[in-house]
Amino acid sequence: MGYFLGLIVVLGALWLGLSGMFKPLLLTLSVISILISILLAARLNTVDREGVPYARTPNLFLYWGWLVIEIFKANWPVIRACVSADLDINPALVKVKTRCESDLAKTIFANSITLTPGTVTVEVEGDKLLVHALFEESATPDAFTEMDERSWRAADGRQAGKTTQVKA
């Protein structure tokens, strides 16, 4: 039931932030639309630990801040490769092993790799990720260990004991 409460709070905050008006008619409409969204989400079976990950929000925001800095550092070589006069790139496919177990942690890790310019996750199978990199020298397996560690801690650090067995 806590998941439903979290979803209601987030949807209400989204509605208030996007509309910014407090007339009674609009508030009634907001309540109706939030109820419809929650009914649809419940019917889709997406209201669970993965679909509503708001309990771990502080951890995720800490990770997010670190990731934005990392993204800006990784933007620079790609921009230089785009504008330099002669094309000088070294694309490669590398396999990366991850320690993340739950689907949420794996999703966060793979999305972080994709979000960083210069590396794209091509395929995920089990605990191995196939990564396409623009520069081979920047995509050694050691380059991903810190991101792996941090995303694992952000997503399921506390409940490492009771990992879920649901696999795709």
Partner: peptide, 17 residues
Amino acid sequence: LMRRTVARQTQPEGDDV
């Protein structure tokens, strides 16, 4: 898109919805 219907059948927490 998702191929996990078999694993989803036995959901332990049955919410009263």
